[in-house]
Amino acid sequence: MSTLKIAIQKSGRLNEDSIQILKDCGISINNGNDQLKAEASNFPLEILFLRNSDIPQYLIDGVVDAAIVGDNLLVEKGKTIQVAEKLGFSKCKVSVAVPRSFEYKSIKDLDGLRIATSYPNTVNDFFASKNISVDLHQISGSVEIAPNIGLADAIVDIVSSGSTLFKNNLKEVEVIFKSEAVLAVSPTISNENQAILNKLQFRIQSVLRARKSKYILMNVPNDNIAKVTQILPVLKSPTVVPLNEKGWSSVQTVIDEDKFWDVIDQLKEAGAEGILVCPIEKMVL
């Protein structure tokens, strides 16, 4: 039987989130500390734990069939690699940062300056598109220290919370693009393994939908049901179940978590009481 080979980051937050989404998909992973490879016991899947920067080339060469990797890495090293699914975690930005004392007015202020980065292709493409010339210094490791030691005038690096920039007396001035974890696919994947990947992607989609949604239940006077259902931002009609108390029903539906707080006051004004909001483990359409 064919086995899908998938690469994930060897360590760090992306590693943890990648393992978690696979487990949420019902996949049991037999892995221990410092393992470079692990197999699933209940799904035809083999996981390779790789250095993050190596993953795009492994995909291109067909060593792995798929990978959970940051979109920023594909922009830098794997533009030809197909993204099958955006995963919604490990979100960050690839940004330009300068010392806080730098009086920044526009991107033209960077023309001719020294830029330190671990993303040379991204930087060259970005500044070329703006018709700006920069002196690129490619370094690995702690890019943020470059301006403090006189190596560069500015940096381009990943920004999550911005705390690392703050600690190094830097400020973000331009966002090149926003990134998140994605499910990427090798251009050489076989038909058999593509079929397995499709099954995995179906599970991932079910998990992602559940993460974005909540199950909501509320008690509503029967005379107000029509008004309440008009307020609820759902695609299909909610479930209405008569309660033991005469004249009342339980209204139940799935709602986008981001929209709940926008309508909660309207629901209460429409007579809804005892509103419960519950997490959803899986959501299959």
Rank of each mutant, 00 (worst) to 15 (best):
R209N: 02
T188F: 10
L36I: 13
E46A: 11
D265W: 10
R100M: 12
A67E: 00
K23Y: 04
C278T: 13
I231H: 04
Q194D: 14
I81H: 01
G112W: 08
I55T: 05
V69S: 07
T164E: 15
I176Y: 07
R211D: 04
A154C: 03
S53I: 14
I47H: 01
I155A: 10
F43P: 04
N244T: 14
F177M: 00
V228R: 03
I19K: 10
A226F: 05
T164D: 14
V83G: 03
F127A: 02
A38H: 09
D256A: 12
L4A: 02
Q252M: 15
K79S: 11
V182F: 05
N124I: 11
W261C: 10
G274A: 00
V123F: 07
S190E: 03
E192S: 09
I149M: 07
D256L: 14
S118K: 02
G112S: 04
S186K: 08
Q266Y: 13
S249E: 07
S206R: 03
G112Q: 04
Q138L: 12
Q201M: 13
V240W: 06
D61E: 06
E281S: 14
D34K: 13
N15W: 12
E180C: 01
P44H: 07
L276R: 12
A272W: 01
D54F: 04
S249K: 10
G12S: 05
I149F: 07
